[in-house]
Write a protein that binds this DNA or RNA. Sequence first.
RNA 1: GCCCCUGUAGCUCAGUAGGAUAGAGCGUGAGAUUCCUAAUCUCAAGGUCGCAGGUUCGAGUCCUGCCAGGGGCGCCA
Length: 549
Amino acid sequence: MIKRKIKERLRKVLKELYPEVKEIAFEVEKPKSKNFGDYSTNLALVLQGIKKVPAKDLAKKLLEVLSPDPLFEKLEIAGPGFINFWINSQFYKDTLWYIIKEREAFGNLEIGKGRKVLVEFVSANPTGPLHIGHGRGAAYGDALARILKKAGFEVFKEYYINDRGTQMEILGASVFLRAKELAGIPVEFPEDFYQGEYIYEIAKEALRSYPDLLERKEEEALELSRELAIKTILEDIRKDLEDFRVYYDNWYSERDLYKKGLVEECIHLLSEKGLIYEKDGAKWFKSTLFGDEKDRVVRKATGEWTYFASDISYHYEKFIKRGFDLGVNLWGADHHGYVPRLKASLQALNIDPEKLQVILIQMVNLIEEGKLKSMSTRKAEYVELKELVKEVGVEAARFIFLSRSADSPLDFEVELAKKQSQENPVYYVQYAHARISSLFEKAKEKRVELDKLKELPSLALEEREEIEILKKLVEFPDEIELSALQLAPYKIIYYLLDLAALFHEYYNKFRIIVEDEGLTLSRLALCKGCQIVIKEGLNLLGIRSPERM
RNA sequence: GCCCCUGUAGCUCAGUAGGAUAGAGCGUGAGAUUCCUAAUCUCAAGGUCGCAGGUUCGAGUCCUGCCAGGGGCGCCA
């Protein structure tokens, strides 16, 4: 918000001085060193490349026009031609009033206004319970959806269910075999079938629901087993996600794509463009024309459609029929090879591939007692999300899942997450919130009410630490913008840790509730601002802010 | 062999689409509470940004090559 304000002013000056310069990519940023002001711009340096005039001379001219502005307390030209800004502290104080007035609406942005975005995440195949890798995707997708909404997008959360294809057949067969086994019939259980204990549970249920299961025609029995398995597992997944406080606007069944005839429609469209051909009895899509490394099969020689064919039509519907302006897909990093072919299909259907943003999330390693726990999907060696949540709780789990960029693999240390101590960063932030709540209770006892703040002519906040906090609070909207544009929830985490640190430091150094009522009220106002921002920041991550700890 | 991600302090990671003097937390060492929550705070030590070139006013950040770790290269999903 503040960055935007400065940028706007700079653009205005630029237009006045150099109307011929249309497109220019310059930055307003917080310099690393405080000696270079609160904010700083490289405008003159970038302009130097275009105008072929020394940056310092350009900066001087810019300053002359920019100078008389109450937003800035001081301006200077420094280094090779940076312009440094010192913001008038009144602006910070005004913002604090604004935060207290707006409460959780502070930081609401309009950068996504009028744009519909679909965030599709987890979307695990209904072949088994969710494991911790899915947990990372769940936390990430949910937080991203909250952040994008805050940034002004119209957001929908969707779970895409792969409820057809080979894996489903294997799932059905796994249950059926286990049912036979339970009935005392000797079976050979293939290695590539689902090995997990939960298959037995479903088999038991199948035998209960269909006592004649084993007498039925095999085809029929397999179907019953399969359908029951999908339904049971999906319910389980849904419950795990709800316990993790993740709710979807829509659960989209892959089968519906076929019911609606979308797959045939899409392949027909591509066919008309001459992008489908037959080879070895299968139908292929010429994805190489759009940068993929090889052509891909959409229909197998057996006559079955591939997963890819479904996905083409799913995204076709997403962007063309359902009218989403942006699709954000969260996939495991092992799917990276899949991105070029999907983008190729969008391009072939005249959809701007930029509309689809795929975030590839790296692995989660579970560390227990300093050792890496190995995980293999098929063999039920993974750790289930529900177990983890039971052990460490939703707040710590979400916080840790969100604390890394998607690009980094995440080492999840269970002992650390369980620790209710200083080593666990989630409590550090929550504790700041709880401390402030407690301050207000104390203030109430002493009959200091924040309402009296209105009578105060101005805020008595002049200490270095107080100004630091004010500055940090003002950054909140900028951080939201950044994390929305970069689809990076972890930015919010780092911001909150910084803010909490500033607060704790302040709290330790100064008494908030003092004799002087004006000072007390001013300090309480500052605390209130912190509390509002911390609570809303944590809320963006799906983490609760306790009143006491 | 090809593709993707990663390589920054002892450990785990930030570094804001190229900016000015490289940042946190943990761990280590030393300290702080008659007073609003010590799940807190203060101070200190700790760096050839994997290696080598290149691009330019300027590189941890961009390009090329190499090295190391992880993941992926099906008419599986």
